[in-house]
């Protein structure tokens, strides 16, 4: 999935995470850049792993992703990363099959 524009999903409320996804400039270091800011640093590794799995799920290989976590469950991290990426990939005629519940490649 190609990240075409900047997009955000989620909030800074407790149990949520605010996720920002933006395209990477060509040739600007490693193609997937993930920044995780956790209210509890012990969970940063877990948040990172969950986010990477969600990015892999959508086939996102080039993006800058910033996650500000407020003690969200894994499923909320996953949901917010998926939402931000789908919004960032959106364009006219974008296929709905990118959604995780149907016909995903």
């Amino acid at each position: 999935m190609e990240i075409r524009k900047s997009a955000v999903a989620g909030t800074l409320e407790s149990s949520d995470a605010a996720v920002t996804v933006e395209p990477k400039a060509a040739g600007a270091g490693p193609s997937l850049e993930l920044v995780v800011e956790c209210s509890d640093a012990r969970f940063a590794g877990k948040v990172r792993a969950t986010a990477l799995a969600a990015l892999a799920e959508l086939g996102v290989t080039s993006a800058r992703v910033v996650i500000r976590d407020r003690s969200a469950l894994d499923c909320a991290i996953r949901a917010r990363v998926l939402a931000a990426c789908l919004r960032a990939a959106e364009q006219e005629g974008s296929p709905a099959s990118a959604a995780p519940w149907g016909g995903r490649k």
């Binding site: 499923c75 909320a76 998926l82 939402a83 789908l86």
Partner: peptide, 15 residues
């Protein structure tokens, strides 16, 4: 609407 749908989807799958 998209974010809520994804959140409930992921929650129902995981919780």
């Amino acid at each position: 609407k998209d974010a809520a749908r994804l959140l409930v989807f992921c929650a129902l799958k995981a919780i």
